[in-house]
């Protein structure tokens, strides 16, 4: 059980200005900008839940994760994870969590992966039997048997990510934090990673908190989404709910012959090319049939397709809606 109550975090960033004179001046009196990274963030996550934590860059995702991992201390507010406050009982807390930073490696570059794993086993004081079970299970699920004897430097990014994830799970943590686990992976590796996370959650009952910019991750994995923007939790709900909210909007892909049509109220152009236009439609203002009629009056249509909004666009829409 993870509970965050009114977590606040402000960063003080020294203003840096160009020019030598100002740099010298800055030595004596610095100007600071206060950045409210987190503003009364509260939510709770039950055991075994899988949550997607999304928001644009700089919204406060990493800061929240770092607080939950015990790396950062918030200014105000409480965070209780299975009865522990992460920044007060760091050692006891981190024993129970696994963390994957998608862009950073914890594997040793020049020695076989298995050596890294064994070191991690010793760091966490995992006993031999638990380790062996865990390793067997992870090897089977992530298809690592070929990789264990290879040094990290000769693995592809996708292979390495699978090993990274395994490395974070050797000690059997109850909670797994994944910070952009699929960044830079090819389609096959992405799918493998997603399937694994799903299985892990189903079989071990591990609580998974996932930050990502890849909406397909969210669609494939999580039922619940937390949307953060400008340090505030803007939305906490299921993906389906969100979809319902935004299915009101439709996307219209129109191919035509003739001059570009003039769009009227309720139509927002997304993409315009000679002979093709993609329009987002707000059906409250303008119905689909009206829109098509209006377009048909101006140009000769060759193809029209009506689409629901994709998760990607939905989130972009949300960002816009909340102006983040």
């Amino acid at each position: 059980m993870i509970t965050l109550t009114n977590i606040n975090k402000t960063f003080k960033i020294a203003k840096r200005q160009a020019g030598f004179g100002r740099a010298v001046k800055a030595l004596f009196s610095r100007e600071y900008t206060l950045i409210r990274a987190l503003n009364d963030v509260s939510f709770s996550i039950a055991d075994g839940e899988m949550v997607g934590y999304i928001g644009p860059n700089g919204a406060g995702k990493s800061t929240t994760i770092k607080i939950m991992c015990g790396i950062l201390t918030p200014d105000r507010g409480e965070c209780v994870i299975d009865g522990r406050t992460p920044w007060r009982n760091r050692v006891a807390h981190v024993r129970e969590i696994g963390v994957v930073f998608g862009q950073r490696s914890q594997l040793w570059w020049d020695v076989p992966i298995i050596d890294s794993f064994e070191l991690i086993r010793d760091i966490y004081k995992t006993d031999a039997k638990t380790y062996q079970n865990s390793l067997d299970e992870l090897t089977a699920l992530l298809d690592l048997s070929e990789l264990l004897k290879t040094p990290a430097r000769s693995l592809s990014l996708g292979q390495r990510m699978r090993c990274e994830i395994a490395a974070s799970l050797i000690h059997n943590p109850k909670i797994l934090f994944l910070d952009e686990p699929t960044i830079g992976l090819d389609a096959v590796s992405k799918i493998a990673v997603r399937q694994f996370i799903k299985k892990l959650n189903a079989e071990r009952g591990t609580t998974v908190i996932l930050t990502t910019h890849d909406m397909q991750d969210i669609e494939a994995l999580t039922r619940r989404i937390l949307l953060i923007g400008k340090g505030r939790i803007l939305l906490d709900g299921s993906l389906d709910e969100l979809k319902k909210r935004s299915t009101e909007r439709k996307t219209l892909v129109v191919e035509y012959i003739g001059n570009a049509p003039v769009l009227c109220e309720g139509m927002t152009p997304c993409e315009t090319r000679e002979g093709r236009v993609v329009i987002t439609l707000d059906p409250v203002i303008l119905s689909v049939s009206d829109a098509i009629t209006r377009l048909a009056a101006q140009v000769s249509l060759t193809d029209v397709s009506v689409l629901d909004v994709s998760a990607e666009e939905m989130v972009a829409g949300l960002y816009k809606e909340y102006e983040i």
């Binding site: 991992c69 015990g70 790396i71 050692v91 024993r95 969590i97 930073f101 950073r104 914890q106």
Partner: peptide, 13 residues
Amino acid sequence: GNGEFDRALVRPR
């Protein structure tokens, strides 16, 4: 800078 220190902080040592 490279996050290695954060990694140390999330390990029980």
